[in-house]
Write a protein that binds this DNA or RNA. Structure first.
Lengths: 239, 239
DNA sequence: TCAAAAGTGTTACGGCTACACCCATGT
DNA sequence: ACATGGGTGTAGCCGTAACACTTTTGA
């Protein structure tokens, strides 16, 4: 076990990087900032910043999330640690170890400088690349993680407002997975899972202007899905 | 985006902690070291150490794995990043951010000072706690992750030697999950997954001294399991 | 009256569970 | 012979996929 001599190691900077995802107009979007300085000046990058001395990475991530989105209350938003990126050359200036997080937002207000935030903005996921540093990889890992967790957790409701229709919930799955799902079967599976969603009594909403008004639901107390809601089969899903 | 002023942040120590798991005599064991100094002098802890300036966390973890086990070749061993633990008070001496890894070993040679290693030794998983620092939590997270990955990946073969019987493979599942499985059904599911295991032609081995000799298998090229091999139902599995 | 979106019903298929049963080996 | 562990067969259950179909709204 190594000694804790303060000079035995080179100083590391520890940062957090955030892959903040939301759905806008039926398309997956990610929150990005434009870099003003070298390296990668002018490129887009994931928002992030240093972990402060008294903070955990989770605390720093939530603080950055509030700063970058300009939202007052980010306490209810889904935020989870992805993994840590620590290649020695990932930042050409110095040694930076970054703990990456994925955050999910229900709606998508354009973040115009809520606090001392940088000029963060929503960018469609498909047109986001290339990003600065190793952020392409982080973003891809976030997408993969979220897609996988939709299968066996109730994560999908984190993309939805407090009250939502089953059609909107289905759109979350279809957008993140890039597939289409059979509506009757989707409905049955969601309703068959106790605690996934709870119907709001009496409430209904018109969705597309036309058609039958849909019943409204709230997220239930469950966190896990049994049985899981599997993606349409594709062979050799990564381990 | 924060500035990269070298004085704008307090120095962080970045370490790796390893949850090295193996099966000995049908029981899950974890590699632990005994601490010689305060804090937690005399307590058991997960092996680990500092990330060196030119290393990624993954490189450091594999280096530590070789040092602590005393094995010459650790390149084939399964090693995966778990998550990063960064609570400000997790080490009372200074700010230490630790990237935790889980490692899986096929057999379990007792590691007697292979290199400059500390006196690491195998401890049955059930009697391992309490550990120093937040290592109880790290160890529990490693166990949970491995248990979950057995369901949908070919990870179980990482616990087995190059050639193994299906009974031994089943013991991996039963030991990690703490359950018993139906042998005929287990066999069918494993063999029905293309690329999970490949039979060694002609080979057979007696296992318990008695009984019919079992056919031998090798790990196949597949990494994912379709369909998954689910744990016997328990409600409310964590997300 | 038609299009659009929500919601219900039904049938066929496949995987899984829970067994019963046979095979080969050592004592 | 019998205990022990490996291996095969099978019947029923349950979830799912793939549809057809009905309901309610706006244009």
């Amino acid at each position: 076990m190594a000694e804790y001599d303060k000079h035995a190691y080179e100083p590391f900077a520890v940062t957090v990087d955030l892959a903040v995802l939301t759905l806008r107009a039926g398309a997956l979007h990610v929150l990005l900032v434009e870099r003003g300085q070298e390296p990668y000046a002018g490129s887009l990058a994931l928002p992030g910043g240093f972990v402060q001395p008294a903070e955990s990475a989770e605390t720093a991530a939530r603080r950055e999330l509030a700063e970058e989105t300009g939202l007052f209350d980010v306490s209810g938003l889904h935020l989870e640690q992805l993994r840590t990126y620590s290649e020695p050359d990932r930042d050409p200036r110095m040694r930076v170890v970054s703990v990456a997080f994925a955050a999910l937002l229900p709606d998508a207000p354009e973040p115009h400088g809520g606090s001392d935030a940088a000029d963060a903005r929503w960018v469609p996921y498909d047109t986001a690349r290339p990003l600065a540093f190793d952020h392409d990889r982080i973003l891809a890992d976030a997408h993969e993680r979220v897609g996988a967790k939709l299968e066996y957790s109730c994560l999908a409701t984190a993309f939805c407002p407090a009250e939502f229709t089953l059609g909107e919930l289905q759109q979350v799955y279809e957008t993140v997975w890039g597939t289409t799902l059979d509506r009757p079967n989707f409905r049955r599976k969601v309703l068959a899972t106790p605690g996934f969603v709870e119907q709001v009594p009496g409430a209904a909403r018109l969705t597309g202007g036309r058609g039958k008004p849909a019943a409204l639901y709230r997220a239930g107390p469950a966190t896990a899905l049994h049985p899981p809601l599997l993606r349409p089969s594709r062979e050799g899903r990564p381990a």
